[in-house]
Structure formats: C-alpha cells, structure tokens
Design a protein around this nucleic acid. Structure first.
Lengths: 192, 192
DNA sequence: TCCATCATGTAAACAGTTACATGATTGC
DNA sequence: GCAATCATGTAACTGTTTACATGATGGA
C-alpha cells in the first residue's frame, strides 16, 4: 500500500521497493531520463495509486544513485540543472533480480482492492444506502472502463505492445469488477 | 499503499485511512472486539497486502479512541488487560461518511497490481526469461485461484454472505488475471 | 513584460513495517 | 513445571504524502 511490498529489514541481495523497481524498469526499457519525466509518466497513467510526488521521486533517484544502481549526467544547455539518469551494470542486475523469476507470492496472490474492502463492510449501511452504493459504484466503474477502453484503442494503433498489454490487464480487472458488482447486487437484492 | 489512500492534510470532516475504515467497519458489522482479534482476522485473510502488525494496529486503536470514534471497556477477568473496543455514535457516523456514497474515484478506478507493474517492464528481460516469467506466474496464479476457490466453497456453506461475496470478488480478479496472462503470452510469443 | 508551466528540490507529518519486550494463559 | 502461544504494547526506521520554495523556459 502504501505500505505494500516493503524492503526486508536486512536483505541478502539489496531488494527494491515497488516504486524503485518500476523506476529502474522504466529507465531500462525507455532509456535514460530525468526524474521529472518519470513523474509525468505516472501522472498520465490511468492508475491513481501513486501520485509520484516530488517528495517521493527526487529522493528515490538520489537513493538509487547512492546505492550504485543509477548514474547521472548533466543535460547540456539546461540552466535548471536537469540530470539524465541511466542504469549502471549493477542497476541492470538488481532490476533483473527484482523482476524475477522467482516471483514472490505477494505479486501473484490476490491484489489489494479498495472497492472490495468497502463491499466487505456494506452491512454497516442500511438497505437503501447499500443499493445506492452499488448503483453509484457500478456506474463509476463503467465510466472508468469506457475511458480506459478508448485509451487502449489509441495505444493499440501506436503499436506499443507492452503498454497495450498493461491497458488490457487494467481493462480486464475493471470488467471482472463490473461482473462481480452485478453478482453482489444480485445476492444483496435477494437478501432483502 | 501502503502508501495508498492517505488522509488529506486538513480534512473538513475527519477522513479515515483505508485501514482505519476497515477496522471501524469490522467493529460495526461484527460487534466490539479487541485489537488482537482484528490482527487475527487479517492474518487469516487471503489478501497479503496488510500484515496488520502490532505496531500498526495498537496505535490505530488508541488513535481512533482519542478521536472519539471508539470506546473501550475492560474485559472482566483478564489479567492481560484486554480491552473490548466498540463504536461510538460519532464513530458510526464517520464510518458511514467514509463508506460513502459518494465513492471517491480512487476506489472505483483501476486498482493497483504488482503483477501488472512487472509485466509492463518485461522488455527488460530476454525472451527466454520472459517466457519463464510468464509460465511461472501463470502457474502461481492458478495455484492461488485453486486455494481461494476451495476457501470460497467452505465459506459458502457457512452462509456468511458478505465474506462469500468478497471471496467471489477475489476469485474473479484472479480469473481475469489468468486470462490476461494468456493474452500476454500470446502477444509476446508472436513477437519473437 | 507577464504569467503559466517546466523542473528541481526540501521540510514536516504520518502510517505502516520489522523487531523486541513483557506478562498471561493453556496444554502437556 | 515448562514451553508454546496468546495478547498487549513500544521503539526505530522507512517511504510516501502534502506543502512550500525557487529558478528557468516559452508563449501571449
């Protein structure tokens, strides 16, 4: 969760945070970039999980540099002192280790879901509010799904395979959610 | 989200963390309980996202008590000083507000998924390692799904509707993932 | 010139994690 | 009596968030 896949206390081979792994991976697949470019990528991502705030990204880059996973070079002719970061050999190796295999169970197991958490507690609401909750969330999820579907189409024509597949994964999650919400409505409608 | 759905800086009406909301909801739907009981519930949950460590749960209870959302009463005849916590009227109201509606977009939007993150970065691996990654994760997800399916059946016969529905939601997520991994393998197999 | 945006960074707060400590209870 | 577990709690640490500060750049 935040508090999600944390670094272990005393790692045999230096482990990475989820965010650190993603950043290393971005640099590996898209080439060297500035911290700000990473932030931009997160901001335009459909997932709202990480805000990729300045206070998270800049310290992360200096951290990875200090650990020897990244190297920095000044961008020529930039008065703002922008630095392009690229992977070191050690960074490459660490990324490979993180990306597995072997893949830790927390990665393949049931992913967290704030909506599932709320549905688990629906009994705390009255029947009318439950129905309203389900109606609203269903329509919200449907809206997100529409939005994401058009985005997926746009990406498909650009032939960016991995980004397309990521979108497809997100679409499938939302579709599964919609079908599930229908099942929930069915069961809860029957109960009352 | 660890660092996931955070409390806003200066909330008009005191907002809750995801974990706080879940705890309030547990107490509301299952009746008053001790912090340890909450920890046990988390430990037996199929989701590995929260460890619900002592350092998280006990401070959380004192926090919610200090804010006036929980009240505590000593459990009679317990030398360990166990305390049963129950919701105050204010706690009830706060829980209702958190549980919505209205439901914030972060709840209904694309949920976070460590596996999706890794697939997004698969290009950082060689073709052989990619195939191995996909094979391994597919079989791992399938194993989790089997496990969860039997758990779901066990819960179904106990007629605990909301817990059953939560399990169904998790099952649907894993099923969607499996189908998606198949799609990924298909696309990546074609590319090479 | 002015203003929005680009871009880099820091400071304080905070929730959750590991790890440890301590005493009560239960089962053998 | 003894060991494992139950149960409560604290301490140090870490990563992320919000909020603020500061300067560069580019377009009207």
């Amino acid at each position: 969760m935040g508090a999600n896949l944390k670094r272990t206390r005393k790692p045999a081979t230096a482990a990475l945070t989820e965010l650190e792994g993603i950043v290393l991976g971005m640099i590996s697949t898209s080439g060297s970039c500035t911290p700000y470019a990473v932030r931009r990528k997160f901001r335009t991502s459909p997932s709202r999980y990480w805000s990729a705030s300045a206070g998270a990204v800049y310290p992360l880059f200096t951290r990875l540099k200090k650990q020897g996973f990244l190297r920095a070079e000044r961008k020529a002719g930039d008065g703002r002192g922008s630095r392009l970061f690229s992977l070191t050999t050690m960074g490459q190796r660490t990324l490979r280790e993180w990306l597995g295999p072997p893949c830790p169970p927390a990665v393949t197991s049931v992913p967290p879901d704030p909506l599932r958490n709320r549905v688990a507690l629906l009994a705390a609401l009255g029947p009318a509010e439950q129905a309203q909750f389900l109606a609203e969330t269903t329509s919200n999820v449907r809206a997100h799904l529409r939005e994401l579907s058009t985005l997926t189409e746009q990406i498909k024509v650009k032939n960016d395979v991995s980004e397309f597949l990521v979108c497809r994964g997100a679409v499938r999650m939302l579709e599964a959610r919609l079908n599930w919400l229908e099942e929930v409505s069915h069961y809860l409608g029957e109960a009352t």
